[in-house]
């Protein structure tokens, strides 16, 4: 099936099998491997991307459902005008990326793209959350390295900085 979607600001038209998951289309079809896969039951959130500005688990969306939609992946977060998702060079990071480094909110980095995308989307919905709300808000994203402590701190610091 033909699908066309805007990914990180540029349009991609492709022929995909109807059953293709959005995450596989992004990774294997478009080569945007920043979005990771950590489970097969929509539990871990490693594959979180933005569809029309809202976070979705891209393992739970078919590529055909994203037809005509606007997708942002981790490669496009720092500068959504960027089209190919290649080297980020000296680009300005999104404040959430900055905060994750400052707070040591990542270790192996595998959950990180999904966690960052979920955190950005969460703060958009709830710009001044309590710690408990942050924890609840990120419930759909699993991390095995950090114990979440520093991830929560990172999100808090962006929330505080944005207010």
């Amino acid at each position: 099936m033909d699908v066309s979607m805007t990914v990180n600001g540029s349009t991609h038209a492709n022929d995909v099998e109807p059953r293709t998951l959005l995450v596989h289309h992004l990774r294997d079809g478009l080569g945007l491997t920043g979005t990771n896969i950590g489970c097969d039951s929509s539990s871990c959130g490693a594959c979180t991307v933005h569809m029309n500005g809202e976070s979705v688990k891209s393992c739970t969306v078919l590529a055909v459902q994203a037809d005509g939609q606007d997708i942002t992946t981790i490669e496009g977060l720092a500068d959504t005008a960027r089209s190919d998702g290649s080297s980020t060079g000296d680009m300005d990071w999104h404040p959430m990326q900055e905060a994750f480094q400052q707070c040591h909110a990542l270790q192996c980095g595998y959950c990180t793209p999904g966690m960052v995308m979920a955190s950005v989307s969460f703060l958009k919905e709830n710009p001044n959350p309590t710690e408990a709300q942050i924890r609840e808000g990120l419930e759909g994203n699993l991390c095995r390295c950090t114990g979440y402590h520093n991830i929560v701190k990172a999100v808090e610091s962006v929330a505080g900085g944005a207010s």
Partner: peptide, 10 residues
Amino acid sequence: EDPKLLTGEG
């Protein structure tokens, strides 16, 4: 290590 991992380049 962080820059690569935070931008999807890892």
